[in-house]
Amino acid sequence: AFTADMVKPGLPVMNADGTPKWRMAPSPHGSYWKDGMKLGYQDVGSATLLKSTPADRRKAAWLYLQFIVSKTVSLKKSHVGLTFIRESDIWDKSFTERAPKLGGLIEFYRSPARVQWTPTGNNVPDYPKLAQLWWQNIGDASSGAKTPQAAMDSLAAAQDSVLERLEKSGVQGACGPKMNKKEKPDYWFAKSEKDGNIAPQRKLANEKPKGETVDYDTLIKSWPASPPKRASN
């Protein structure tokens, strides 16, 4: 989301030839990460047409949505904001030519690594209420007011309270949260192991193994270009 502001000519982070002094690289991960887990987060846009909106306005909105995701408009928007909508934008020749000046952005989006990043899904029932809980508890952990474990326990309890109220109210209908019965941690650890899931995990004996520095050129090879498969006629 911030790449467009980081590639402007004349910035201290840019070389005179228009290439960036910085590079994008595969996301690092901690000791609990396992293959199949997400490695990053990105905001993605979407559009919702409400049933309560008059039909003529919904039709107009639908036409506008088709316009903004059309190939020509989408490609132009991708070059200006450096955020992508269409697969064809990512693989357009103009981005092949521009890639050396974008620090690895195009290589990332052309690789399977992009699916390791998660968008904001539709599984956050009340973002405003829950978000304020996240920052409050993260702040407590960051400041040392609480241990990380105590902060996460506090966050979990506060989130459960909000979600339980949403469930009881029924205001979100079939899309609302469905809470599980409260169980001890060992119940969920055992269930995860039995079901072959990768989370939650039991506490590791060593949560902070020695870090590893990898050569950038070697690391970037984990981003092989993977062109989309085209249906044969």
Rank of each mutant, 00 (worst) to 15 (best):
A1D: 14
T3V: 15
V7R: 01
K8Y: 05
P12H: 11
A16D: 14
M24Y: 07
M24I: 05
A25T: 08
P26M: 06
P26S: 11
S31W: 01
K34L: 07
G36Q: 15
L39F: 04
S46C: 13
T48Q: 09
L49S: 12
A55D: 13
R58G: 06
K59P: 02
A60E: 10
V69G: 01
S78G: 13
H79R: 11
R86C: 05
D89S: 14
F95A: 04
T96F: 07
R98S: 12
R98E: 15
L105P: 00
S111E: 03
A113H: 02
T118Y: 10
P119N: 11
N123K: 08
V124E: 10
V124M: 07
K129G: 01
L130K: 03
Q132C: 06
N137G: 01
G139I: 12
A145G: 08
A150W: 08
M152V: 10
D153T: 09
A158R: 02
D160K: 11
D160P: 00
V162E: 13
V162H: 09
L163M: 15
R165Y: 06
L166M: 12
K168Q: 14
K168R: 14
V171T: 13
Q172Y: 05
A174M: 10
A174N: 12
C175P: 01
P177F: 06
M179W: 07
N180V: 00
F189E: 03
F189N: 04
K191I: 02
S192V: 05
K194V: 06
N197Y: 05
R202I: 00
A205Q: 13
G211H: 07
V214L: 15
D217H: 12
P224I: 02
S226Q: 14
P227K: 05
K229N: 09
